[in-house]
Write a protein that binds this DNA or RNA. Structure first.
Length: 326
DNA sequence: GAGAGTTCCGCAAACACGCT
DNA sequence: AGCGTGTTTGCGGAACTCTC
């Protein structure tokens, strides 16, 4: 190209305080389950402030479980997840401060250990430096990520969100897209129709339903074959960032309290309320209380919600509930 | 016929969570 | 803190239609 503009002074580069790092250039290879993705984000968030100043970080294991929305006492699963994070690599390909191309690879966590209920972990110095970027921080919106139920949807969200200002992602060769979703190495998904049916459609639907962006897939074909994909991205007016709460609001409600008293688990209670609405759930609770003699209230309530039991004339209860009612 | 698109099914692994 | 168990998710596949 001809334009090596000489009057663009070197001092210009010196004056520029903020070096633009390309967040899009960090990507994680291999497959992470939803729990693992959430976990890595929580760990990063926890470490963020001291990312470059301290070489190791700590978080209470209980808090950790709570923040990823994982309510179980099963430490084995947590261990498994931490292990896979340590085994997973992150790769970056970006311009360094001098405008030179830099490529690098690092384990997501250099180590993690659990002792006395505290989880201690560390990032490799090189990765920590890459991660210490306000844009990365903004990306990790816990309130949003906690809402996702599918790992693919969260992966898609993470890969799309940073293009919000641009309005669309670039055209991704299908190959690249598969890698972004952590699906490479699967013969099954080499067929686009399968990829579309199992991954793209459900993930797009979930992103649009639960996050603060709306995405629309667009396809490029070469002949009949789909060769590239991109996503148009808009803000989701229905779900501005501020409107999204993490279920804490629900936990204050009377319906939630009533469910807890019946012995319903936290997760299920939130799921029912958000799925059916408070009124409907509370109607069924009233109905349940009117029945009496039910020895598995939770199971009965579950059936009542699903089959819309009415006070006048109960629809045939499930076998289990029927047995319980005798 | 080749590939997309859709709708079923089944299995294994991951996960949730009460119980002890 | 770990075990047992029921549920959900991920993944592969079959069958069938639709459109170039």
């Amino acid at each position: 190209m001809s334009s090596s503009i000489p009057h663009d002074r070197l001092t210009g580069a010196l004056r520029r305080q903020s070096v633009k790092k390309n967040v899009a250039a960090i990507h994680v290879s291999g497959k992470l389950t939803l729990l693992q993705r959430k976990l890595s984000n929580v760990l990063l968030l926890n470490a963020y402030d001291s990312l470059v100043t301290r070489s190791k970080h700590q978080i209470d294991a209980r808090t950790l479980c709570m923040m990823v929305g994982y309510n179980s006492n099963d430490m084995d699963t947590l261990k498994q997840s931490l292990r896979s994070l340590a085994e997973t690599t992150a790769e970056w390909d970006m311009l360094d401060a001098n405008g030179r191309q830099e490529w690098g690879v690092s384990a997501l966590l250099s180590y993690a250990k659990l002792s006395a209920g505290v989880c201690e972990y560390a990032y490799s110095p090189a990765l920590a430096e890459k991660l210490h970027d306000p844009k990365v921080f903004a990306l990790i919106n816990l309130n949003i990520q906690r809402r996702f139920t599918s790992g693919h949807a969260l992966a898609l969200y993470e890969n799309c969100y940073r293009f919000l200002r641009t309005g669309s992602t670039g055209w991704w060769p299908i190959d690249l897209f598969r890698r972004l979703m952590g699906l490479d190495g699967s013969a099954y998904y080499e067929s686009f129709k399968h990829l579309n049916a199992k991954i793209i459609k459900p993930a797009v639907a979930e992103v649009n339903k639960t996050s603060n962006i709306l995405i629309t897939p667009e396809l490029h074909k070469m002949g009949r074959q789909v060769s590239e994909i991109r996503f148009l991205i808009k803000e989701n007016p229905q779900l501005a960032m501020l409107d999204i709460d993490d279920g804490e609001g629900l936990r204050q409600g009377a319906v939630y309290t009533a469910l807890m008293e019946l012995g319903v688990s936290d997760r299920l209670a939130r799921q029912w309320i958000s799925q059916h609405g408070e009124d409907y759930v509370s109607e069924k609770i009233v109905y349940l209380k009117g029945r009496g003699g039910v020895d598995s209230p939770v199971g009965y309530l579950s059936a009542a919600l699903k089959n819309d039991y009415k006070a006048e004339k109960p629809v045939a209860p499930t076998p289990k509930a029927k047995a319980a009612a005798v």
